[in-house]
Design a protein around this nucleic acid. Structure first.
Lengths: 253, 253
DNA sequence: GCTGTTATGCGTAGACCATACGCAGAACTA
DNA sequence: TAGTTCTGCGTATGGTCTACGCATAACAGC
């Protein structure tokens, strides 16, 4: 059984150490024909083109003109590759908030940056995340988020919790809208027709006596109007920021 | 190409119609030896025992003493089975809020009910959800949530958004804590040692000059203390409810 | 320049997986 | 009794990840 920890904590997979610039190539042996960044890049290209499900080791290898098993000299497993894909897929963090922004403007900007990243690469949502972030860019995002809360009266732990609240929300909202998009593509329906169709389906299924509140929602036509998904996003984000605002005021007073 | 929609909206998979009590068994042909509920039950049993990854068609069939392909007479695909597993896995909805509860108490109770369901069956978090809920119990949960907001001044659409906000949060929080649990089991580390180990790892990786805010969090020992995860849950939930509260006040005033 | 060491590329093969298809036989209707 | 229709399921296809081992390339030291 391989050790997963040592004296100084969990052992990092070699390819992740590589991403942090640790580990230098040993001088002996033939020169590598591939590289971890090239592999991750190819994998991201496949995911961009055909979705995460199309990312198999053999497909990525084909993309690089290499044999399937060659990849395993660079990444320890497919899961490792996925982790690195996420790191590259999010892209560089949005940077520290501009000095004129207060915490709320800064976090809004930060949330929108993640929102954009997830909208641009919806396959990121399908990667099963398997632990807290340990890759360079991921931690960069976290750093930039924390900086937005720098001047506030929150405790450090509360800052983390607030950030988790926001990323969680962003991911969640992105998941829902991307499901609508994927569902409409799969069913061959206009995206704008997706929610109304869902509404009709539910209306056909439920008994109004057993589901009165749901029936009222349907009657109100909530699912019929296709409002700007960005408005929906803004709504939820503002609720959460209001909640954080309430806490900050309490801590300040 | 099979039709995914008809005049009255998206076509429901047969097994889901079955779950709604539509469709009666045709009188001809041999009597079925299995049933959809029995299959779903077996699949849930497998997931409970060995996790979602262990749920394969052949494993479920073995659980029932049937042949793999026999299952396909009852469910159209593995995805359909997963959808039904989710419906059964969540269990019955918590019921309408007691009359003495205001909206906040009601939603708190509702959120905790989902929290408990997800904690009890963490494999629910690993099921890739592929669209809005259409199964009976899932819609039951939605109904009960909506009823909590019955007396408030929110528009119907706002009620839905608020609910989405909360379930999203609950799922998210459950995902994070279950990752810690699974990670600690995989690494053979005490769960309480997981976050401190993560903290040490991050501390070793980051350059304090580039990640000052993150460094401050580490220095504050945020990851070292293992506080009750329920407190963490309560914190985020209260933030969100505060945000909803602010909206309700605005709509009421 | 030769030898030993070490790394790479990758072919083979094993152990799974979902599921399309088709056939034998059971249970009903007429 | 004949026809119809549905069930159970064996077989087969094409996909997945990845363990293992071999040939070879590139260096270090002698």
């Amino acid at each position: 059984m391989a050790a997963k920890t040592d004296d100084s904590g969990p052992v990092l997979p070699a390819s992740i150490q590589n991403a942090w610039g640790l580990r230098d190539r040993p001088p002996k042996g033939p020169r590598p024909g591939l590289s971890v960044p090239a592999i991750v890049d190819a994998a991201v290209r496949v995911a961009d083109a055909d979705g995460l499900a199309a990312v198999s080791m053999s497909r990525v290898a084909k993309e690089l003109g290499a044999a399937t098993m060659a990849l395993y000299r660079y990444v320890g497993s497919k899961d490792e590759l996925l982790m690195l894909m996420v790191d590259m897929g999010y892209g560089p963090s949005p940077g520290p908030p501009p000095p004129e922004d207060d915490w709320r403007a800064g976090l809004t900007r930060w949330a929108w940056a993640e929102h954009r990243a997830l909208r641009h690469r919806s396959w990121l949502l399908h990667v099963p995340i398997s632990g807290p972030p340990i890759t360079p860019q991921q931690l960069g995002w976290m750093e930039d988020g924390l900086r937005c809360l720098d001047g506030t009266a929150l405790a450090e732990g509360e800052k983390m919790s607030a950030l988790l609240l926001i990323t969680g929300y962003v991911r969640n909202e992105a998941t829902l809208t991307s499901q609508i998009a994927e569902g409409s593509r799969a069913a061959g329906v206009e995206p704008s027709e997706m929610m109304p169709a869902y509404g009709r389906l539910v209306a056909r299924l439920i008994d109004p006596a057993r589901f009165p509140a749901l029936q009222r929602v349907l009657d109100a036509g909530v699912l019929n109007q296709d409002d700007d998904p960005d408005d929906e996003f803004t709504f939820g984000l503002d609720r959460i920021l209001d909640g954080i605002d309430a806490l900050i005021r309490r801590r300040t007073a």
